[in-house]
Simulated scan of single mutants.
Amino acid sequence: MSLIAELPNAGLLKKVADAMKDLCKDVNFDCSEKGIQVQSMDSSHVALVSLNLKESAFTDFKCERPASLGMNVDSLTKILKMTSPNDSLKIRHQVDSDVVGFQCEGTDDRISEFELKLMQIESEHMEIPEQHYKVIAKMPSSEFQKICRDLKEFGETLQLSGSKEGLKFQVKGDIGSGNVLLKPRESEKPEEKVSLTIHEPVNATFALRYLVNFSKAAPLCGSVTLGLGPDAPLLVQYDLESEDKGHLKYYLAPKIEE
């Protein structure tokens, strides 16, 4: 066996696959002794998805030698749909095998097994430069999702600006315009608070449909972190339930004004 990985709950991988499937069709799951990673651009090369599922997220993890498992994300979600969120999930792959095996075990002693054919996917590993964001915002992921969905009704381009006033989402379109201003707020519950760090004001525009896609990862984590810099891709980061299990990051290139 070159890979044996056991997740205590299949729900985590299901949420990850659901969060990626509208952006990436076929991806390589790169396995090493540190865990499982994915880096994939969407077809239009505007957005990058970066997943880091750390070894600590698994109850059992052995990877004897690094392997790249190419999978169709839609097919993976079909397999994971058959699992219950609290089933334990074992992922197995043998050296040079062209399938990856999934075994899920429920609390009712039901064991289901699936195999998924692997694909050869050409992909170049992208180095993501370390960014020093001028604006960092942390907010409830459900609120981010609602803002993106609400504003999508007004237009296609979102103007995002961070300043001392707060974080402002603005959209202008044919039917009118909308804007939402989020101000920092404290809360007993970390997933309800809004925190803003502004090193300098930043104003940038992005294609809103991508942000609506990114916001579909909301079930992964109660809060989401946005990183904004001048002429830099926007970072949208979710922890995988908790920070020590890893993260799912999206990067979105800004729209260049014509």
Rank of each mutant, 00 (worst) to 15 (best):
L116D: 13
K117R: 14
M119T: 14
Q120T: 15
Q120D: 15
I121H: 15
I121M: 14
I121P: 13
E122I: 04
S123I: 12
S123L: 07
S123M: 14
E124Q: 15
H125M: 04
H125G: 11
H125N: 13
H125Y: 05
H125T: 14
E127K: 15
E127Y: 02
I128V: 15
P129D: 05
P129M: 07
Q131F: 08
H132C: 14
K134R: 11
V135D: 05
I136F: 02
I136S: 15
I136V: 15
K138N: 10
K138A: 12
P140R: 08
S142P: 00
S142R: 08
F144D: 04
F144S: 07
F144R: 02
Q145W: 01
Q145F: 03
K146E: 01
K146R: 15
K146S: 15
I147L: 05
C148F: 14
C148T: 04
R149N: 11
F154V: 03
G155E: 05
G155M: 01
G155H: 14
E156T: 15
E156V: 07
T157R: 07
T157E: 14
T157P: 03
Q159H: 13
Q159W: 03
Q159P: 06
Q159I: 08
L160D: 09
S161L: 12
G162L: 02
E165I: 12
E165F: 06
L167F: 01
L167D: 01
K168I: 05
K168F: 02
K168Y: 02
F169D: 03
Q170M: 11
V171I: 03
G173E: 07
D174C: 01
G176Q: 10
G176I: 10
S177Y: 07
S177V: 00
G178V: 12
V180E: 08
V180D: 02
V180P: 00
V180M: 05
V180W: 02
L181I: 06
L182M: 11
K183M: 05
K183A: 03
K183N: 01
R185E: 04
R185A: 06
E186F: 06
E188A: 09
E188F: 02
K189M: 04
K189E: 02
P190V: 06
P190W: 06
E191S: 06
E191I: 04
E192W: 00
E192Y: 11
V194T: 12
V194N: 08
S195G: 04
S195H: 00
L196G: 00
L196C: 01
L196N: 01
T197Q: 11
H199C: 14
H199P: 03
H199Y: 03
A204L: 10
A204R: 09
F206K: 07
A207Q: 07
L208M: 05
R209N: 11
R209Y: 09
Y210E: 11
L211M: 04
V212I: 12
F214S: 13
F214K: 03
S215H: 10
K216A: 02
A217Y: 08
A217W: 10
A217F: 10
P219Q: 02
P219C: 01
L220K: 11
